[in-house]
Simulated assay, not measured.
Amino acid sequence: MNFNIRGENLEVTPALRSYVEKKVAKLEKYFEAGTISDVHVSMQVFNNQQIIEITIPMSQLLLRAEETHTDMYAAIDLVVEKLERQIRKHKTKVNRKFRQSGGVKYMFRNDLPQEPQEDDDDIEIVRTKRFTLKPMDTEEAVLQMDMLGHNFFVFSNAINGETNVVYKRKDGRYGLIEPE
Rank of each mutant, 00 (worst) to 15 (best):
R130E: 15
L16Y: 08
P14S: 09
E66G: 04
Q117N: 12
N157E: 11
A33N: 10
N157G: 05
N157V: 06
S101G: 03
L63S: 03
E11Y: 07
T92A: 14
V80W: 09
A15Y: 01
Q86C: 02
R109H: 09
E8L: 08
T132N: 11
R109S: 04
S37Q: 13
R88G: 05
D171K: 06
L176D: 08
D111A: 04
I123K: 12
A15G: 10
H40R: 14
D146E: 15
P135Q: 11
R17N: 14
K134L: 09
T35G: 04
I87F: 03
S18G: 05
D111P: 08
L78V: 01
V142E: 08
A25C: 11
Y73F: 02
A33K: 11
G149F: 07
I123N: 01
S42L: 10
G161C: 05
T35M: 06
G172I: 06
H40G: 00
E32V: 04
T55Q: 14
Q50I: 03
M72T: 00
P135E: 02
R17S: 13
P14D: 13
S18Y: 00
G172C: 06
L133W: 03
S156N: 12
M1V: 05
V166P: 02
N157P: 05
S42P: 02
T163C: 14
A25T: 11
G7E: 09
A25Q: 13
L176Q: 11
E66F: 01
D120T: 09
V39P: 04
R173H: 15
M58V: 05
Q44H: 06
G149L: 07
I5E: 11
D171Y: 03
D122P: 01
D137G: 13
V20S: 05
L143P: 06
L148S: 05
H69Q: 09
Y73W: 00
E180S: 14
E28D: 15
A158Q: 13
N9M: 01
V79R: 00
T13W: 04
K129M: 10
F108N: 05
T138H: 07
F155H: 06
T138S: 12
E180K: 14
L148Q: 11
P113A: 12
L83D: 02
E124I: 09
R17G: 01
Q114A: 13
E66Y: 02
I56T: 02
E32P: 05
V80I: 15
D137A: 11
S18D: 15
L78H: 09
E115R: 13
M107E: 02
G161D: 10
I52Y: 05
F46H: 13
I36T: 08
E66I: 05
H69P: 00
K93L: 07
N48H: 12
N95A: 00
K82C: 00
T70Y: 13
M58E: 07
Y19S: 06
N164Y: 12
M1K: 10
N47D: 12
R109K: 15
G161Q: 12
V142P: 06
V39Q: 07
N157Y: 08
F108H: 02
E11L: 14
D71K: 02
V41T: 02
S37D: 13
T163D: 10
I87W: 01
L61T: 04
D111M: 09
